[in-house]
């Protein structure tokens, strides 16, 4: 899929992962930095979003600091029940990501709620509906958040 990306697209993605100018005319600033016309940067971003390379253009909030609840949870799902349990878990709007991983703990999902106390309630609901234990593993310390992908 990378081949489909124009070198200017790569330049824009690499630059914008690091931040976006906070001034009245941010595109003009960016245009000077990248040596690409402002209109072209905007139209390329629009297309990159449409094509699914970029999921969002804006802020990544810190849910806990804004008063929300956020955690990583894991389950040991019997392989023959995996699809059924996946459907059950994903039906909750509070489940943000759900990854299958090759381990006895084979289901890993992120729970994000508007209020911190809702995390425990959702976990209880999932345990009740599936009959399986949910292991709650909230972050205690963060050493790095990079999430920058060089393309």
């Amino acid at each position: 899929m990378m081949e489909a990306l124009h070198s200017l697209d790569k330049k824009i993605i690499n630059s914008l992962q690091g931040g976006f100018p906070l001034c009245e005319k941010p595109w003009d600033v960016l245009s000077q930095q990248l040596d690409i016309p402002a209109d072209e940067i905007m139209s390329r971003i629009e297309r990159l979003m449409q094509d699914g390379y970029i999921s969002r253009f804006g802020p990544m909030y810190n849910a806990e600091k804004l008063g929300g609840g956020l955690t990583l949870a894991a389950m040991k799902v019997p392989p023959n029940r995996f699809d059924e349990v996946t459907d059950c878990v994903n039906a909750f709007d509070e489940v943000a990501h759900n990854y299958q991983r090759d381990h006895i703990f084979n289901m890993w999902f992120v729970l994000a709620t508007e209020k911190p106390e809702q995390i425990k309630q959702i976990i209880k609901k999932i345990e009740k509906q599936t009959g399986l234990l949910v292991y709650n593993m909230p972050k205690k310390e963060e050493y790095f958040l990079g999430l920058k992908f060089e393309v």
Partner: peptide, 16 residues
């Protein structure tokens, strides 16, 4: 720190 980052969020799977 209420906003961790401000810019684009990429779908890494689509970027290779």
């Amino acid at each position: 720190g209420d906003i961790k980052r401000f810019g684009v969020v990429v779908r890494h799977r689509n970027l290779g």
